[in-house]
Amino acid sequence: MKVDKEKVFKTLNPNKVWIPILIGVGIVAFLFYQDDTVTIDNLSLIFTAKVVPVMLAFLVLFARDVGYVYRIRTITSEKLSWKSSIYVIILWEFASAVTPSVVGGTPVAIFILMKEGLKLGKALAYTMVTAIFDNLYFVLVAPLIFLIAGGEIFPENSAIDSQFGKSLPVLFFISYGAIATYTLVMAFAVLVNPRWFKWILLRITSIKWLRKWRPYAYEQGAEIMMASKELRGKKYSYWIKITLSTLFIWTARYAMLNCVIEAFTNQNFGQHLVIFARQVIIWITMLISPTPGSSGTAEFIFTQFFREDLGAVTFISNIFWRLMTYYPYLFLGALILPRWIRRVFFEKKTKK
Rank of each mutant, 00 (worst) to 15 (best):
7 K>I: 09
13 N>F: 09
13 N>I: 04
22 L>I: 12
23 I>H: 04
33 Y>P: 12
38 V>H: 02
44 S>A: 13
48 T>K: 10
54 V>A: 04
62 F>L: 01
72 I>D: 10
73 R>S: 11
82 W>D: 10
88 V>S: 13
91 L>S: 09
105 G>A: 08
110 I>M: 13
119 K>H: 11
125 A>G: 00
136 L>G: 13
141 V>L: 05
147 L>V: 07
153 I>H: 02
156 E>S: 10
157 N>H: 13
157 N>D: 08
158 S>E: 03
160 I>S: 12
169 P>Q: 09
184 L>C: 05
189 A>G: 11
190 V>S: 02
190 V>C: 01
197 F>G: 14
199 W>K: 13
210 L>A: 11
213 W>A: 10
222 A>R: 12
224 I>C: 04
236 Y>A: 09
240 I>P: 03
250 W>L: 01
251 T>Y: 04
252 A>W: 06
254 Y>S: 07
254 Y>V: 03
256 M>K: 12
267 Q>F: 01
268 N>F: 13
270 G>H: 14
273 L>Y: 03
275 I>D: 00
285 T>H: 12
286 M>D: 14
286 M>F: 15
291 T>R: 00
300 F>Q: 00
304 Q>V: 05
308 E>D: 11
310 L>H: 05
313 V>A: 04
316 I>V: 12
319 I>M: 02
321 W>Q: 05
321 W>K: 07
324 M>W: 12
328 P>T: 00
